[in-house]
């Protein structure tokens, strides 16, 4: 009793692993910085980038076809970090100054304090838009949220940042 069959053909030819190293070298530092700002922990960001890059490498034939590979890595790293944090018994990463020992100069402290006012989802959106130069649509794809959500988070986050930055003047 063979029931039925539906065949949806084979996929396109798989790209080679070629290109990963170039992608890695071109993007790893900015992705790390973007995650460091979003997560507010350099060590966690470094681990997250390494994990996300390893996954990109393992699945490079797929990832290399994406329009926004950096956004994919950012999202995977962010998900890994938040999941990791949850498993390590904290529902949210701490806003701990000691986690950012390099954030000492006044202008850095101002920026840090302003960003610290934002919930992580808003920081992630602003990070994607400002540091990764992603469009609204690309940010939505990278973070797996709707474009409307990107816009609302961006608007709210920018409002807070403007207020915080101006109040420091």
């Amino acid at each position: 009793m063979v029931v039925s069959t539906v065949m949806i053909g084979a996929g396109p030819a798989a790209p080679e692993q070629d290109g990963f190293e170039a992608f890695y070298r071109a993007n790893v530092d900015r992705l790390y910085r973007a995650l460091a700002v979003t997560l507010r922990r350099d060590d966690l960001a470094a681990e997250a980038v390494a994990e996300a890059m390893a996954r990109a490498y393992a699945r490079w034939p797929t990832v290399s076809r994406l329009d926004n590979r950096a956004g994919w890595v950012f999202r995977v790293g962010l998900n890994w970090a938040t999941s990791w944090w949850r498993k390590v018994r904290r529902e949210r990463p701490p806003a701990d100054d000691s986690a950012h020992p390099h954030l000492r100069p006044p202008e850095v402290a101002v920026a840090r304090d302003a960003l610290a006012r934002l919930p992580e989802p808003q920081r992630a959106v602003i990070t994607c838009r400002v540091l990764l130069d992603l469009s609204t649509a690309e940010t939505a794809t990278a973070l797996r949220i709707g474009e409307g959500t990107v816009k609302s988070r961006l608007a709210r986050g920018l409002a807070v940042l403007r207020h915080e930055l101006n109040s420091e003047d």
Binding site: A34, V37, H100, L103, L158
Partner: peptide, 22 residues
């Protein structure tokens, strides 16, 4: 759509660039 002003963008970049290299 919210426009990202240069001073805000600069602040975000400042925070990011303060991190040591990867």
């Amino acid at each position: 759509m919210a426009r990202i002003s240069e001073d805000v963008a600069e602040a975000v970049r400042t925070a990011a660039n303060a991190a040591r290299g990867y």
